[in-house]
Simulated assay, not measured.
Amino acid sequence: MKSLKKQRRIQIVALAVVALIGSFGLIWYASQDAFQFFRAPSEVIASPPAPTEVFRIGGLVTEGTLVRGQGATITFEVTDGGASVPVAYTGVLPDLFGEGEGMVGTGRYVDGTFQATEILARHDETYMPAEVIDALKEQGVYVDPNADVGTN
């Protein structure tokens, strides 16, 4: 009788371990597309990611590169001061999007062009995503917009 109880207990523990491993595997598989890594334009140029990899790119929209085509596709370049990456986006741009402004895009780097599926712009005249600020600081081109507050 004791050996039957012991055998049943071992079966339950083994089933629980298998269920735990299975649920962990399903969660990991489902969350693979949820993780998007941020890259600065200099990083993208230095080591281009695979065309299937979805990531975020951010920087400043380069002056004079914003082209609104005949269709819905808009092209421009994003820079961090060290390198520029051409971006193509099909859709409606945020109202605050413009040349010389900070932006973050989500998409893939295909054939030398970042194919964006989403574009985010600054929230107001002083906001810029932390990743973009860090990348611009590394390049030595970041200017704090609040630096001259209080000086007349």
Rank of each mutant, 00 (worst) to 15 (best):
K2T: 03
E138K: 12
P41F: 07
P41R: 07
G107L: 01
L20E: 06
T79L: 10
G22T: 07
L26E: 11
L60Q: 02
R122E: 07
P94N: 08
G71M: 06
V87Q: 07
L66T: 03
P86C: 08
L4P: 04
V92W: 03
P86G: 01
V104I: 15
M103L: 11
E53S: 15
G81M: 08
A147I: 13
G64A: 05
G64H: 03
F97D: 05
A72W: 07
G140S: 08
L66D: 02
V44E: 03
T65L: 03
S31C: 15
E77A: 06
R8L: 14
Y127V: 03
R122T: 00
H123V: 13
G112F: 11
L93R: 06
G25I: 05
Y127L: 03
H123N: 09
Y142P: 04
Y109N: 00
G71Y: 04
E63P: 07
T106F: 09
V110T: 14
G100W: 07
G64E: 09
Q7P: 11
F97T: 01
M103D: 03
A46I: 14
P86R: 02
V18Q: 08
D144R: 10
G69F: 11
D95H: 07
G81V: 05
N146V: 07
P48M: 04
R108N: 11
S47N: 14
M128A: 02
T62I: 01
A14G: 11
Q11W: 14
G150M: 02
Q11K: 07
E131S: 09
V54L: 00
G100K: 00
P145T: 08
V67M: 07
Q7D: 03
Q7A: 14
A19R: 10
T106M: 12
P41M: 10
Y142G: 06
E77T: 08
I21R: 12
F35Q: 09
P145L: 14
S3V: 10
G58R: 00
A83P: 04
F37P: 00
T151A: 15
T151H: 10
A121G: 06
V87L: 11
G112S: 11
V143R: 01
E101T: 03
G69P: 07
P145F: 13
V87Y: 02
T62G: 01
P94D: 02
L93Q: 03
F114Y: 07
D33Y: 10
D33P: 04
F76E: 05
S3E: 15
K5W: 12
A50P: 03
R68T: 02
A30Y: 06
V141A: 12
G25Y: 01
I21S: 15
V104H: 02
P94Y: 08
V78L: 10
T75V: 01
G58L: 08
I10K: 15
A83T: 12
E131W: 05
G64Q: 13
L26R: 03
G25P: 01
I12C: 08
Q36W: 09
I45A: 12
M1D: 12
G102N: 09
S31E: 14
T126Q: 00
